[in-house]
Design a protein around this nucleic acid. Structure first.
Lengths: 330, 330
DNA sequence: TTGAAAGCGCTAACAA
DNA sequence: TTGTTAGCGCTTTCAA
């Protein structure tokens, strides 16, 4: 920049003004500076600039996802990118892999890079240990789960209501022997409670409803489904709390040729769900909407909004495709 | 940092040494500095540090993907993250949406943030206009396509060979009326040439092979497939150059109840491909492998490797699942 | 409208 | 082993 100033025959501050499109520069000097910067292949250094700028903004944010390659995460990522790119904000993205230590390390890495804000899907039960004290005031938005031990906005799906809806949907089709398959009990507890709560309200003995949690992948979900279907009093309907669990159930049902006999409602929509046989009824979350709301909240906080933190609930949608509308064999 | 130094009663450089785990600090002073930094909630500022470090490394790279939410992109992203996180390098990710202007703007945004390297899946035909002159020497790795107008490493799938393999696979099952459905002719030209080239070698009149390109989404692929199937001399086998085109063909075949009559081989594997009816035969790329190689090349370049750039070819794999093994009706 | 000086938080080089 | 000084490239402040 100093070099450009010299070549253009102006002061260094004038170059800064031109590069940042600040007013009060005569068109003539503007042109001279632009010419010089082009000739010298000059490019403004945002990193150095952020050091002196008030608030030290870096125009970057950190995004902590369960896994960048998981479809829900990546759609969320995209929605957030869409909202931030127009403001010139770049996104650091990282995967946490259900590992609280990794979550903590990644938060530290982003804080060290002086991001202007953080969007995170928390893994750790409480954020007291993941967010160091000196950064509690950093603009932050939590997704999927409200923060514990920290005050910040959150954007969540209506998990309990949606799961209850799935339960009543299956009840309405005549099922009384239902089963719940889920991942981590702490994270997806809302879904389980919504589901079993509704069954209880309907007068079912919930202790007779098998609840299998801690299913971390497609294969363990498949195993769990096979086991239940092989037991006595096998379920006539499944509810799965996550897309890969749904995949496991689909496999189990297909293997046993029960796809058209046993009902299934899965949380999370997925590609080609309607092309399966039968089509898979799902509760579709709206990652695009969730990401958009989260990004907007983050921007508002970055812009100084200091209202009390709120939790925003984004409704999901039950999409009937066949598998959830099967009735139990008489 | 100055503050921590004062509280610990040491020089500022000693604090720097401790925070960066440099040697030659006595355990006693180390502890005093650590105590002080904890008491003051101090956190090292990497942004400021990068300003003075030799080579000005920021420990961040830019990753330019077609779309972060597309499964191929996000798996690639994950593989790159896996290779770079252990080195403490953070990843800026962004979507280009097939828009050369956006590509250029994002490159500029990352360069302005002084990333240590760039991984990109180029959209623009030539990179002369997207990579400004002053950054031609920045460590860079191209994915899916070799760079034009710039010298850099590239990592690609064996597109032509794989597509030729798909062609011979379909020929071996007795097909003579085949069709090719593809996205952008410039980007996926290798696949088309590999496919039609093999048919030519087998003695087919390739001018009679319908080639539909420019299919930008599932719906246009579906339309194209429906049209071909409704014409005279409908194809008995399809080759699709990309996962969403495969989806469109699957839809078209299902609508016409031809899923078990007309063969299909799709480029790119996808979730539940084996659960379709019939299972979908695909050429599976290995984004994990591609990403790993790309990240390793980038790290090598960052570490000063200055050998002549090379193109690395990562083999793909034809996975038989049924749809590609159907024979034409006699 | 323009420019000079100070300093953001840090690390390299060198001195003690 | 420790500390001092200079300066990375920029923007702010303030003076011209």
């Amino acid at each position: 920049m100093r070099h450009v100033a010299k070549v253009a025959g102006v002061g260094i501050k004038t170059v800064s003004r031109v590069m940042n499109d600040e007013p009060d520069v005569s068109e003539a000097t503007r042109q001279r500076v632009l010419d010089a910067s082009l000739r010298l292949n000059y490019q403004l250094d945002m990193v150095a600039g952020s050091l002196r700028r008030p608030g030290r903004q870096t125009l970057s944010i950190g995004l902590l996802l369960p896994r960048v390659a998981n479809p829900f995460s990546s759609r969320l990522h995209r929605a957030i990118e869409n909202a931030l790119t127009p403001r010139g904000i770049a996104v650091f993205a990282a995967s946490m892999d259900d590992d609280p230590d990794r979550e903590k390390a990644l938060v530290a890495a982003f804080l060290g890079r002086r991001v202007d804000g953080l969007v995170l899907t928390p893994i750790a039960r409480s954020q007291i240990h993941t967010i160091p004290e000196h950064s509690r005031a950093l603009p932050m938005v939590f997704i999927e789960r409200e923060p514990l031990g920290i005050d910040a906005d959150a954007v969540v799906t209506n998990n309990a209501v949606a799961a209850a809806h799935a339960a009543s949907h299956l009840l309405a089709h005549g099922h009384t022997r239902l089963a719940y398959l889920g991942d981590r009990a702490d994270i997806q507890g809302e879904r389980r409670r919504g589901f079993t709560g509704e069954l209880e309200r309907a007068g079912l003995y919930t202790y007779r409803i098998p609840v299998r949690e801690g299913l971390h992948n497609e294969e363990s979900a498949r195993q769990a489904a096979l086991e239940l279907l092989g037991g006595n009093e096998p379920p006539t309907a499944f509810f799965s709390s996550q897309h890969f669990i749904t995949f496991g159930v689909i496999r189990a049902l297909k293997e046993l040729r029960l796809s058209r006999k046993v009902a299934l409602v899965g949380f999370d929509d997925f590609a080609l769900a309607d092309m399966m046989d039968p089509g898979v009824t799902v509760i579709a979350q709206h990652p695009e909407r969730i990401g958009k709301v989260a990004a907007e909240r983050l921007l508002a906080r970055i812009d100084g909004d200091d209202r009390a933190p709120e939790t925003y609930v984004v409704p999901s949608e039950l999409i009937e495709r066949g598998s959830g509308e099967l009735s139990p064999a008489p």
